[in-house]
């Protein structure tokens, strides 16, 4: 059992938890994730470890509510416990003292933040592009500003920061003479794909972090398989980070929709069960 130590709402439907997980905290490096299960009838879901404090034996998770499990998780309170937490899983980010452009789209900021911290700590130069659809959905702005050597914030609707997409901001930086050794882009699949389309002709190495459906997380079932450079990879043991220019985004996008019908049923049932009584 893993007790929730603290809870903070970062945006509508976006929650940051610190939870008790000493075995995970001790070993965790940026880029890794956990698989959690809320309770006995729950499903196993992967969540990136946003941060870890080994001295406290705690890890932080930033969760966006999208379906039953994440909404149920976000409704939990400090003092309550999550039944199962396994990790740290996946390969850690390869951190080098490079000039890195870290692009976080929406909840992707939570994945990019530890990487940005790592690159800075290694002596690299970190430029952050933080984007979201609208002002309310911008998260971790202060945390990222504290780590970044330079930072641009964008919103699709112009309600905050620069009006435009993260790809517009990236193109601008490049046009204004910024050079990078690599780009790290994490966010919704269409965003990561769009960044790769911009960087491919520039021959600019781009790392993405993939989010397929997972079950065991240890390489045993193949449910999280993706095609990278024409080869089969399992995101849980070969990833979660890959060379974005080699990823078959179309295939991953299709596979993410496998359980749409069941997800809708589960969410509807959850909303009915938790609706306040009339």
């Amino acid at each position: 059992m893993h007790r929730i130590l603290s809870k903070e709402t970062l945006a509508p439907d976006v929650v940051r938890f610190w939870i008790d997980a000493p075995v995970v905290a001790r070993k965790r490096r940026p880029g890794q994730f956990v698989i959690i299960r809320l309770k006995e009838d729950g499903e196993r879901i992967p969540l990136t470890i946003a941060d870890a404090d080994p001295s406290r034996g705690a890890i932080s998770l930033i969760i966006q509510g999208v379906g039953k499990s994440t909404f149920a998780l976000n409704a939990m309170e400090p003092g309550q416990a999550i039944l199962d937490v396994a990790g740290p899983l996946g390969l850690p980010t390869k951190i080098e003292p490079n000039r890195v452009c870290c692009i976080g789209g929406g909840i992707g900021a939570a994945v990019v933040y530890p990487i940005a911290c790592g690159v800075k700590a290694a002596g690299g130069h970190v430029v952050v592009i933080l984007g979201a659809r609208t002002r309310d959905l911008i998260i971790l702005e202060d945390d990222l500003r504290a780590v970044a050597h330079e930072m641009v914030v964008t919103t699709d609707d112009g309600s905050y920061g620069v009006h435009g997409l993260v790809t517009d901001a990236l193109k601008n930086l490049v046009a204004n003479g910024h050079t990078f050794d690599e780009v790290v882009a994490v966010g919704p699949l269409p965003m990561m794909r769009a960044v790769c389309d911009v960087t491919r002709p520039l021959n600019l190495r781009t790392i993405v972090s993939l989010n397929p459906i997972m079950i065991d997380g240890t390489g045993m079932c193949g449910g999280c398989r993706v095609t990278v450079g024409g080869e089969q990879k399992f995101v849980c043991v070969d990833g979660p980070e890959f060379d974005g220019h080699q990823v078959d985004f179309g295939e991953l996008s299709a596979r993410l929709k496998a359980y749409r019908e069941q997800e809708a049923i589960a969410l509807k049932r959850y909303r009915e069960m938790t609706a306040p009584s009339a």
């Binding site: 009838d41 499903e43 499990s69 079950i215 045993m220 359980y259 069941q262 997800e263 589960a266 049932r269």
Partner: peptide, 18 residues
């Protein structure tokens, strides 16, 4: 088999794994 045996997908939606 893992979905069905370990995660009891045959009892969806009572169990969450589909």
């Amino acid at each position: 088999l893992t979905r069905s045996n370990l995660m009891k997908a045959y009892r969806f939606p009572e169990y969450d794994t589909p």
